[in-house]
Design a protein around this nucleic acid. Structure first.
Lengths: 338, 338
DNA sequence: AGGTTTTGTATAGTATCTGTCTAATCTTTG
DNA sequence: CAAAGATTAGACAGATACTATACAAAACCT
């Protein structure tokens, strides 16, 4: 998202006269007119009496330009940069299907036509917005519309906390896409693509945070488990809260986990399992961890443990079960680590 | 965060006037001009009014030079070093004697085992040649020093093109780490971590580029293949060159590839295979693709095909073999697509 | 120390960029 | 209607950048 200069989410309703813009941007009126004349930036619509009428989007653009100026860039170069990037990703966010999209995408969409009702409306006013964002992200992904998927993601982050976005948007959309695939509504190609986009997103966010100091926390997937997204979101959220996290990726063998725990002496190991078998493979871990690295805490979580499928693990005293969702898991980890 | 425009890693786009460069590097304008005149370092393009226009890459180079100066090196020597390493591209085949390296690795391994400090500072004349960067990145990774791994990556990108970094740094380092693991020098935890860091890096870069329009190109891994990095680098490099790429991730089943080719009608499908079995599973694809989507070009590549292991595929007329390395592969794809 | 090279900065003169000002006209508002 | 606010077009001056030459401190050699 760092690269995207995307002002599409701002309203383009023409409402502000030039004085209002001056107040909100700190740019004088003559300067605004000069910029418009010389660099062809902004084309505010006009009132009946030919007065300029600026939009919220115009103001966002002006503030962005102001930031460029602040960093030493000249106004001509900043505008050139703006124009460049506007041309590069031209289309605006979402609703209209078709355009440059392949016709087959719309076909896929209509085949998956029942997705609208797939999400249960959870609660109050928030529910509607969440619902809308889920629907939009789901549509973006199954249409392979990567650009707008990122835009929707950004939109969601503007309104909700990262934790909420992870739990109430990303997770349900991915579950829905998994079910769509299971029901033959979408191909595995689309499913792979959607996963790759979201996994990529979280890798980006995770990387952007950078490392901190403190007790080491290893996060990864259970043996044979290849669904990374849950572990990755958890790794990201933990690092975001200041923990010293290393992300290990999919399919961590038991032997190596024990060996690494012995050598690296992490404060905690957090493992995610989505599939029944992956969770089953975990049962050997707690006793061996207890023997070789008694100071390392073990956390497990993921859909594989839901509905009490693996009671031996979720109720064990040497294992900390993360609970039913991400936020519960975060709380559980932080409560135990402190 | 939002005000940082991070163009496609270190892009060559000429966007910064000299004042912006001064602010971002701390080097005065006269000095910048003197360096350009005397040492032939940087050749910024010019605006209509003959003003210098620097790129993100130029700034990275300047920051790197600044670091050399901080550590006592003279500007002439720093520039010479820069030029030297840039010319060295093809010639450096950084193979070192195996024994010495093994010893070094075990030593590093034990250091990694203790996981002492994230900052093992060694600011004695850091070389910029490929061999040094490889060694440094390798060390960062097996010490789980994520912060400095990213720093090394950035340093490499300041001097070499992204293509060179992929081919001559990332790939050999990952191969080395794979061998280290195979030889029992490092645990699979370290190997997973290293892979996750680099995969994450390329996901970030890939995402930062954003989508374009044009003929669709699907990039992914052969069936059962779970080593993503090759396909991911290729997807990134292709998108960087303006192709309309969708990345599909690991393990694409044959049936779904055919089905997607029929529906999405991509101009090309590019598949990477590292393991022998993955490449073998591909043999069914060409005839079916020919039958169901005759207009879609198929490209295959990856270590699995080296040394002529799968002659039926690499010499087939319906399949385009990507050749021995990334750059060959890129050339091959672009030559065919045109 | 004395001589040479390196290297950041300074100067002068010219060109370009860019914010503001002016003058004349038009629109909105009280 | 008068005052306040906007409009355009042109003009202007200070800021910024360019080239080319010059200079002096630092670094380096004997």
């Amino acid at each position: 998202m760092a690269n995207n200069i995307n002002f599409n989410s701002y309203s383009d309703a023409p409402v502000f006269n030039i004085k209002a813009v001056t107040q909100r941007t700190g740019i004088s009126a003559p300067t605004l007119r000069a910029w418009e004349r010389r660099y062809n930036v902004l084309s505010p619509s006009r009132s009946d009496g030919n007065y300029r009428l600026f939009s919220e989007r115009d103001i966002a653009i002006l503030n962005w330009l102001n930031e460029r100026l602040q960093s030493g860039m000249s106004i001509s170069r900043a505008v050139a940069l703006l124009h460049n990037s506007q041309h590069k990703h031209g289309t605006s966010n979402g609703q209209t299907n078709g355009q440059g999209q392949h016709a087959e995408f719309s076909q896929l969409q209509s085949r998956a036509g029942n997705y609208v009702s797939a999400f249960a409306v959870e609660d109050d006013a928030k529910g509607l917005n969440l619902e809308h964002l889920r629907t939009q992200l789901h549509r973006n992904l199954i249409q392979m519309d990567e650009h707008n998927a990122h835009a929707t993601f950004a939109e969601a982050l503007a309104v909700y906390t990262v934790e909420d976005v992870c739990q109430n948007i990303i997770t349900p959309v991915l579950i829905q896409i998994g079910e769509d695939w299971h029901d033959g509504l979408i191909s595995v190609t689309i499913e792979h693509f959607a996963t790759a986009v979201l996994v990529g997103k979280f890798y980006s966010l995770f990387n952007a945070l950078g490392t901190t100091h403190g007790p080491l926390v290893l996060v990864g997937c259970a043996p044979t488990e290849r669904h990374e997204i849950g572990a990755l979101m958890l790794a990201f959220l933990l690092r975001r809260r200041g923990h010293n996290v290393r992300y290990l990726g999919a399919d961590m063998p038991i032997n190596d986990l024990v060996e690494s725990a012995r050598k690296l002496k992490p404060r905690a190991i957090v493992l995610s399992a989505m599939l029944y078998e992956s969770a089953g493979a975990l049962s050997l871990l707690p006793p061996r961890l207890q023997a070789y690295a008694p100071d390392t805490l073990l956390f497990i979580g993921g859909n594989a443990f839901r509905n009490g499928i693996h009671p031996a693990l979720t109720s064990s005293k040497t294992v900390n079960y993360l609970g039913n969702d991400l936020q519960e898991g975060l709380k559980s980890i932080e409560a135990t680590l402190r």
